[in-house]
Design a protein around this nucleic acid. Structure first.
Lengths: 239, 239
DNA sequence: TTTTTCACCGATAGTACTATCGGTGAAATT
DNA sequence: AATTTCACCGATAGTACTATCGGTGAAAAA
């Protein structure tokens, strides 16, 4: 038995972390309805009343949980993206676009499940987190697709690009869940399906973009896109 | 004005229906967490204790709700399918495949939202309903795709077909929600996106199904087109 | 009419959870 | 060593909900 002389603040922080982890586990296993200060505190090994030493109330804990969860997801996405950049994969840039969120999701199954649940639940304290996470994924896709050369010049194409990104995002989540449930063991195959799905949709986009049905504006307007895919959102860690 | 001489059983049945409708509304607006016998009974205009005249407990009400909801969704799907059969739409068979579930979902927004929520919530009494509904949609898609000539001979193709159907289903729900939220006003456009999405994925399937077992072959430019799904395109206009 | 039935009511016991209280002992500070 | 700080404790008041009770009046049956 190690006898690490924990300082008071270290011990407190450790308890706090136990509370957060306990809440995450209960949230994943029993859902938001199963959450209570009693259960969380007990699972963390402290008295129910001591819960309030660390958090103002359950809402407060969930806020912190969402913040940290969002950071973890974003970090996983960043990491996967970085790894994808280092690897040869020039040929499969398109495919990587789908592997990255898939891997990020599967690296944190509880967060994925919680996010999917909370997204449409008006009573959920995590709804905001879920909506923002989904928006981040959608933007990631939209930006990556734009980077692949699928520009959206007019209003309609922009909307279509968004719709495609949203559909792809939903499919990504569904396949990630399927993978986590063991139905689709091969993550590469999931990425393949997503790649194939998007390819068809993008053809529609490009088709519309190159040969407009209503040539009212003869302006090609080949604007060089936002250039940085989703890098702009968290380019922070530099190179 | 109206003086409808309601028999006792008629009045009771009407109260029961009010309870179910009230529960559905609360469920949609506040989520499962906001549900209580107090609220439901009050919204239905009766005393809380009288709730138990009609249902054993809240679980019982939710069971009935799920049964009726499932029946309504299935009915809407059946109806849309029937209507699609009657219409000329030979050209847009493929597209109809996606319009049908879209319309069915949008006809019952509360049920769609509730289903999406409950699907991944382990604490939800409606989880079973959600899972079965999702499975029904997925099967609908898989069957329709099969009807379009995309056979799945071996294990792998079967799994891929299922994955495609699951992805498409998820995208369908996402776009239906987007439509209900007003972001995608044109349901036809949603169907177009879904059509395009599936077309790419089906190409992958067909490629695997018709081509010889040589995985190194790159994308062929020719179009064998067994059942002619994409032939109709949409107004084609080669441009 | 007389009697029975029963949908509905108010009251309430019981359960589960929240959030605050004063107390305690060991770490931290003096 | 003496004092202060504070993370944690048990107890408990307060809140919200569930589910059961006996009572009531009007519809239904006799």
């Amino acid at each position: 038995m190690t006898t690490p002389p924990l300082s008071r603040s270290e011990a407190k922080d450790q308890t706090r972390r136990r509370l957060i982890r306990a809440a995450l586990a209960i949230l994943d296993q029993e859902g938001e309805a199963g959450l209570s200060t009693v259960k969380v505190a007990k699972a963390a090994g402290i008295a129910q009343s001591s819960f309030y030493v660390h958090f103002k109330d359950m809402q407060d804990l969930l806020r912190v949980l969402a913040e940290e969860g969002g950071e973890r997801l974003r970090g996983a996405m960043r990491e996967a993206r970085r790894k994808a950049r280092e690897e040869p994969g020039d040929l499969d840039r398109h495919r990587d676009t789908f592997r990255i969120p898939l891997e990020a999701s599967c690296r944190h199954p509880e967060l994925l499940r919680i996010q999917l649940r909370a997204r449409h639940d008006p009573s959920s304290a995590l709804r905001d987190f879920a909506v923002r996470t989904a928006a981040a994924y959608r933007d990631h896709h939209a930006a990556d697709l734009a980077a692949l050369g699928y520009t959206a010049d007019d209003e309609r194409d922009r909307r279509r690009l968004e719709m495609i990104a949203e559909g792809i995002n939903a499919a990504t989540n569904a396949l990630a869940i399927g993978h986590l449930e063991g139905r689709y063991p091969d993550l590469d195959e999931c990425a393949d399906i997503l790649t194939a799905l998007s390819r068809g949709a993008l053809r529609l986009l490009r088709h519309e973009a190159t040969g407009p049905r209503h040539p009212d504006r003869s302006e090609p307007a080949h604007r060089p896109a936002p250039a940085d895919p989703a890098a702009g959102e968290q380019r922070g860690d530099g190179g």
